[in-house]
Design a protein around this nucleic acid. Structure first.
Lengths: 197, 197
DNA sequence: CTGTCTCTCAATCAATTGATTGATGGAAAC
DNA sequence: GTTTCCATCAATCAATTGATTGAGAGACAG
């Protein structure tokens, strides 16, 4: 992941307000007036900083990407075993899910729009690709060290992990105990188990 | 799943046109004028059949639910082993993914909106719950018959299966070979493996 | 033939909404 | 002190868009 230009000042305020509103009302409910009101500025001032709504959405995507990178780099992983790293991923996801769910909600919303907007796709796809590759790398290491199944398909398993986490976000945001069960199931699905009897 | 009222005639045409447009342009791009144009009727005629846009969306959700039930009931499963049933699920998903992807795209779009619209949620949630429960049931049977891991958590594993399929839909729609790898990984994750001597 | 019911449309409304304009205040530059 | 540039706002525009109105065509019953 190359470093995108950081968003700061008024632009950052605008991006955050937009993110909040997208999380609250969805993309179709996003109105430039509401963003301006939340920032506390005039609509014209908003358009002074961000010429069009399209540009605004791109800025939101960049802002999200910055957060993602920051969170990713804030994780110390040296010296941890693959299982521990994976558990760290789960804990990280769980924390964001409960304390900053807006991030995943907006992410999903943008991911959706990326299907039809190349500029959004350019910001979003790298994040998703990075997440998948990072997860696959963990699985490769675990397999090579003999803690994960020898017949595991790292890329496919990475998609399994991410898909399970994403799905859990929508269906278990209010049921953390179930989220933990899903994570435990993922580990059991990946790890080498003691032979029967 | 109780049977919803079937949509037919002009209403069915309208629902299908709306589904196509939602799949093409997303929810925010849905315009009553466009729907009317695609059906080949006047906007006023559209509003004669469907009073408000909200009602229209509800009809789309019902239409989707009908399809879902029809597809679900068209599957003969008697006499099949849990593994075979699960493989049938995968094949079914794969077929819809390639031949009627619009169904899943609209489903995702509605699922999103269900977060903020109780009427949509009432149509969508039962489908999702049904899918999860049905999958969990398959896993329970497989576990009890000794083909799936004894320590499997059926509900969590069902979420894993569905999450993986859903994620595959977005990231592997153009790469069926990878979709198959994901399905194979799911099976390996669930099945009892020969003990490593 | 008349009345009624269903379905349709052209024309129009009213509200929303992204974007622009022209002006103002203040800080830095010269 | 004057000029220049940045940020801001009130007011307004122009287009979009969901919805309504009033009229008409066709089928069918009596």
């Amino acid at each position: 992941m190359s470093a995108p230009k950081p968003i700061e000042g008024r632009l950052a305020e605008i991006a955050m307000a937009a993110r909040e509103l997208i999380a609250e009302r969805g993309f179709e409910g996003l109105r430039t007036r509401d963003i301006a009101a939340r920032v506390g500025i005039n609509v014209a001032t908003l358009h002074y900083h961000v010429p069009t709504k399209e540009a605004l959405i791109r800025i939101v995507a960049q802002s999200l990407r910055s957060d993602f990178i920051a969170q990713s780099q804030a994780r110390p992983r040296q010296g941890l075993s693959p299982v521990e790293v994976l558990k760290l991923e789960f804990a990280d996801f769980r924390e964001t899910m409960t304390e900053a769910p807006e991030r995943y909600i907006v992410m999903a919303e943008l991911s959706d729009r990326a299907e039809r907007d190349a500029a959004i796709a350019a910001e979003i796809r790298p994040m998703q690709a990075y997440w998948r590759r990072m997860t696959a790398d963990i699985i490769v290491e675990g397999r090579d060290k003999g803690v994960f199944r020898a017949d595991v398909d790292p890329e496919a398993a990475a998609m399994m992990v991410i898909g399970t986490l994403s799905m859990s976000f929508w269906h278990a945001r209010d049921d953390l105990e179930f989220f933990d069960r899903a994570c435990a199931e993922l580990l059991r699905a990946l790890m080498v188990r003691p032979s029967k009897d």
